[in-house]
């Protein structure tokens, strides 16, 4: 009798622990939304989703920062995704065994580099390079995109590698046996078969880029203005929150939470997208 009770208690305790992840999500959504509420009621959505950010004048528009987030993310993916998928192709198709395990370590170590360290490197080394090369301040979309490309590289590489490895070996063998070259096999057989997985990899990389804060904060400028060129300073949602949360109160603080809420919704939308893509793949299989 006692034994059964203990099993029951253990089971329930473990269940509660498993539900912590769900509880965590609910808490985060609840508290961020609660703090964002005053911005919606007092400033209003029209004000929040406008281009003017001037807390002293009662303007709390976040479109500049949304633009900054989207442009740096696209830039980071344009630079990082081909490199990452190329690395995954290298790992799965080209690399000899020993090189493969070495290169896997390299990617893992790259994933472990703290974003503040990468940002510091960007600020002390990369920004001066861009400054000298272009005669601009050096900070801005370009610098942030390069940093983000490095940040998304390990994520996209790891997930693409899994997607490429999931393609049955027999598909590739059949193609090679018919006389196709390695590249023809990759282009006509491997990539089409792994496409949903590669898409998931890029989407998750996108999530990483949208949420990245510190590495971008050190190279983005900052400036509360739309970027006019690749090297003009601007702000992203994350950097604006980071830099103003400490010294803001009232509606301004609430507007920063509204930006946090936008970030939350963006990352959730990406998860929904990933799930839709993987479900499609499962049904197709």
């Amino acid at each position: 009798m006692q034994g059964i009770d203990r099993e029951w208690i253990v089971r329930k305790t473990l269940f509660v622990m498993a539900m912590m992840a769900v509880l965590g999500v609910l808490l985060i959504v609840f508290f961020v939304a609660r703090e964002a509420m005053p911005a919606f009621t007092q400033a209003g959505p029209a004000n929040l989703f406008s281009s003017a950010w001037d807390p002293a004048g009662g303007r709390y528009g976040m479109l500049i920062f949304i633009t900054g987030t989207l442009t740096t993310t696209v830039g980071g993916l344009l630079l990082g995704a081909p490199l990452a998928i190329g690395s995954a192709l290298f790992l799965t198709q080209m690399a000899p065994r020993r090189v493969r395990s070495f290169f896997t370590r390299v990617v893992e170590l790259l994933a472990g580099v703290p974003s503040i360290v990468l940002g510091w490197l960007g600020f002390t080394v990369m920004v001066p390079w861009i400054r000298e090369a272009t005669g601009s301040p050096g900070t801005g979309i370009l610098a942030a995109s390069i940093i983000l490309a490095i940040m998304v590289l390990p994520t996209i590489t790891a997930i693409s590698k899994d997607a490429l490895e999931a393609v049955p070996r027999s598909y590739l063998d059949a193609s090679l046996a018919m006389g196709a070259t390695r590249w023809q096999t990759v282009r006509r057989v491997l990539i089409p078969s792994a496409k949903p997985g590669l898409l998931v990899a890029v989407i998750l990389g996108m999530g990483r880029a949208i949420g990245e804060t510190m590495a971008v904060a050190l190279v983005i400028g900052p400036a509360t203005a739309y970027p006019t060129s690749l090297t003009s300073p601007t702000h992203t949602l994350t950097t604006k929150i980071l830099m103003e949360m400490g010294e803001s109160t009232g509606v301004q603080r609430s507007a920063l939470f509204a930006m946090g809420l936008v970030l939350l919704l963006l990352s959730m939308a990406l998860i929904v997208l990933v799930r839709a893509v993987t479900r499609e793949r499962r049904e197709a299989a």
């Binding site: 769900v22 508290f31 949208i210 990245e212 804060t213 946090g260 939350l264 990352s267 998860i271």
Partner: peptide
């Protein structure tokens, strides 16, 4: 549900964790 929760939690940007932790 737990897997969905874990997936969503792992996608939350760290700065959002920061401001959430500050509030709660």
């Amino acid at each position: 549900l737990v897997r969905l929760g874990a997936d969503v939690l792992s996608s939350v940007p760290s700065v959002v964790f920061g401001i959430f932790g500050m509030v709660l």
